[in-house]
Simulated assay, not measured.
Amino acid sequence: MHRKLAVIAPAAAVALVLSTLAPATAGGGHGHHGHHGHSSGLKTVTALDGPRGVDALGDGRTLVAESDGSFSLVVERRHKPAKVIPLGSVAGGFAPAVAAGKNGTVYIVTGAGGEPGGPPTPGAATLYKWRWGYDAPKVVADIAAYQATDPDPYDLEGLPAESNPFGLAVLRNGSILVADAAGNDVLKVSKDGKRITTVARLKPRTVEVPEGLPATDPEGNPTEFPPAGTPIPSEAVATSVAVGKDGSIYIGELRGFPATPGTSQIWRVKPGATGALCDPEAPYSGSCKRWADGQTSIVDLAVDKKDTVYALSLSKLSWFAFELGVPGAEVGSLTALTRSWHGVKSKELARGKLISPGGVDVVDHTAYLTGPVFGPGSLSKLALDHHHRKGHHRR
């Protein structure tokens, strides 16, 4: 965080703000009908450093997390700069995910640390909680330790027990959902952290190698990829999880190598289900069904009370194109999706304005977004059109 923007609030003020956080319910948002009209401009709320995690609480209060592992409460003020109130920090390197629970509890989950296949670094792949009065965040669950006992049977990279927690949500009953991008699954952690169950597991999908991959990488080294159009299996990479109004769990995919655009799916898991299998070969059977298809490199989801899903893409050309330095691959997208008897309708919001975004939440006619996730960034907000209605459900 740019510390010149940080405001240390009196202890009583911070406690009051956090104590008024709404009890966690579902998703993040407000009602929506048909995506008519246009969204207004994207406005910066405050500067942040490598921001990703975001949970919009309403009334101009938003939880955010940055690349140094810090998490803060941003409080908007009319005609004045927003206050950034530091709350705590966990292991840094890449910004964690963050979500508000009941009674002022804040949950934070860190991603992988160390070399692939090796032991995680201290504080990596861990779920924490924080409340006012804590000296530091407390460990709720060691996600990496659980994944070591629950290997991915569909792993394609020879690391079936690898863990990289990426997405976070809180259920009405206080349980915490964690989307693990390396385990290709979504876990449910009890409030006390003593019980972890696998809610859903995502199977790989066969995709075609996309056209336009460069002949050299950003350092000028030759690249060797199968010819465009070659079908190859690709892992799901579960990056995001959100909760609908009825308790359904929505899961978003990044898509593994070769990250073919348009092959990221959104899955919907039946409320209360455990051990669900999200299978692209049988996408409409069982307790996990494909809710939408055709997305690219999803890194976050938000769901409103009308079950409009907001899917955030790191790059419209794919994360792999971004990594390879393909021109234009830094541009991401936010898409609002609604499902009816006629299928899924989609509308891109803030077209061309999102640069490597990291997180999204929606509340009070407004989408809150973080990014870029690498280097200097910000918390921004996007006013939505008048066809969006009020209402908020935690992710």
Rank of each mutant, 00 (worst) to 15 (best):
R52Y: 12
I298P: 02
L187G: 12
V209K: 00
G275W: 08
P81T: 11
A26D: 13
A321S: 05
K245R: 11
E76M: 08
L168E: 08
P283R: 08
A136F: 15
A273H: 04
H32S: 12
H342N: 13
N221D: 06
G29D: 10
A24P: 11
G272W: 12
G50S: 13
R395P: 08
I143V: 15
P153F: 01
A242G: 14
P204K: 00
Q265H: 06
F166M: 14
G113V: 00
V299A: 08
I196L: 01
V209R: 05
T338Y: 07
E76K: 09
S297T: 15
S175V: 02
D307M: 06
G375P: 13
E224T: 07
I266F: 01
V207Y: 01
S163D: 04
L384S: 00
A125T: 14
T110N: 09
R339N: 09
A145V: 09
V14N: 01
A99K: 03
V17Q: 07
F166L: 09
V209C: 03
A238R: 00
S72T: 00
A367M: 08
T370S: 12
A13S: 07
R389Q: 01
R78H: 09
A144T: 15
L317S: 07
K270T: 05
L21H: 03
Y146P: 02
G256D: 00
P218Q: 03
G391L: 05
I232E: 08
P283L: 09
E66T: 15
H36A: 11
D304A: 14
A13Q: 13
P233W: 06
H32V: 13
R172M: 05
H392Y: 04
F71A: 02
W319N: 01
A22E: 15
G286W: 01
T239V: 07
P372A: 01
G272Q: 14
G133S: 03
S72C: 11
G158R: 12
S67H: 05
K305M: 06
S72N: 02
A141S: 04
L156T: 01
P258H: 10
T370Y: 11
A276M: 02
D150P: 00
W130A: 03
N103Y: 00
P210E: 11
V199T: 15
A242T: 12
A112C: 02
P10E: 05
G358T: 13
G377R: 03
K102E: 13
L48G: 03
R394V: 12
